[in-house]
Design a protein around this nucleic acid. Structure first.
Lengths: 184, 184
DNA sequence: GTTCGACCTGTACGATCGCCCTGATTCTAG
DNA sequence: CTAGAATCAGGGCGATCGTACAGGTCGAAC
């Protein structure tokens, strides 16, 4: 069989960990909670992973990579810079700011500040995402593509953060489109 | 005496809590760690506060209110929308993204998602801050002042989040200035 | 000088934490 | 069919958690 039984359990642990990071917070995910949520015994966690931090890190990096990769694909179909911003915001719209995935992103940013190895992996993911946007903006004659991409990426995370506190203005899309202006 | 001995200890606990939230993370601040950091015995915490969550919430709200109030004062001296954005970014520049205050903001956003009462208090602070910026932008004939203020506030938090992963592009200030365009 | 309240210390309780170890079970190669 | 590897359950260890409580110290009011 291609996927062994143990590999299935390992994946269940990772998906459960990703959910729990968002729901309970990074440092509130314990071995027993994680095991119960994945439907296994507590000691199975330490059979598949060396430590709790290792599970959380791998789960977070995997989940973030998937989201970022699908998120940067929305730019491929956009035909103009304004379309690209709209598509980016639309793809973000499925996250309410209070859902596990949104919170996993922020939790992981914070955890990365306390774990240098995790920090490097996350920085790599975000840099790759930002580079992808930079290239796309440059190809569409946007001025200062690198800084514009940095603002767009930061705005997305910031909007998620603020949206968890309450609804946002309808016109944020129109305003964010101002960021991408053509070269003179 | 105006400030009693007990009040001094209470304040030491609050400032220590604010630091520890940023350094260790919200849910990793324990009674004993907090007491040790404030130079008091462990049970003093529960003499001045009903629970650990209460200390953390009050410390976070107090710290955030101070920062937001001083931060919105930088707009008062700015004479143009572009100046305002520059002043905002400059006032944010003193926070590296890895310092306790930056991290306290994000930690508190996340904690607010798990505590409705804290959420309301934080939402009030952020809304007041955003309203202040909105009024200032409107007074300076910026189009869509409310949405522009939302983008600016979100960008500030997002930039802090991303700056903790690595240095940012030099031109983010120039790009962010594009957000504030005059009414047609 | 005594009383009283504010303030603090030390200790204790039950719960939970990460991690380890020992056996049982299940699967697979030979 | 069997031996061995892979996988899992259960229990236990020392540490730490939040909180409660009983007693001690100390300054101020009377």
């Amino acid at each position: 069989m291609a996927v062994t039984k143990g590999e299935q359990v390992r994946r269940r642990l990772l998906t459960a960990a990703a959910e729990l990071i968002g729901e309970r917070g990074w440092s509130a995910v314990s071995t027993r909670i994680l095991a119960e949520h994945a439907g296994v015994s507590a000691s199975v966690v330490h059979y598949h992973f060396p430590s709790i931090q290792a599970v959380l890190s791998e789960a977070a990096v995997t989940a973030m990579r998937e989201v970022l990769e699908t998120s940067q694909q929305v730019f491929a179909v956009a035909t103009s810079p304004a379309d690209g911003v709209d598509a980016l915001l639309a793809s973000v719209d499925q996250y309410s700011g209070t859902d596990p995935m949104s919170r996993l992103f922020v939790e992981t940013y914070l955890a990365a500040g306390r774990d240098p190895e995790l920090r490097d992996r996350i920085a790599g993911l975000v840099t790759a995402f930002r580079t992808q946007i930079t290239d796309w903006l440059a190809a569409h004659q946007v001025a200062d593509p690198a800084a514009s991409a940095a603002i767009l990426a930061a705005a997305v995370d910031g909007l998620l953060l603020h949206r968890s506190l309450g609804p946002l203005d309808d016109q944020v899309g129109a305003v964010l489109r101002r960021v991408v202006i053509p070269c003179e």
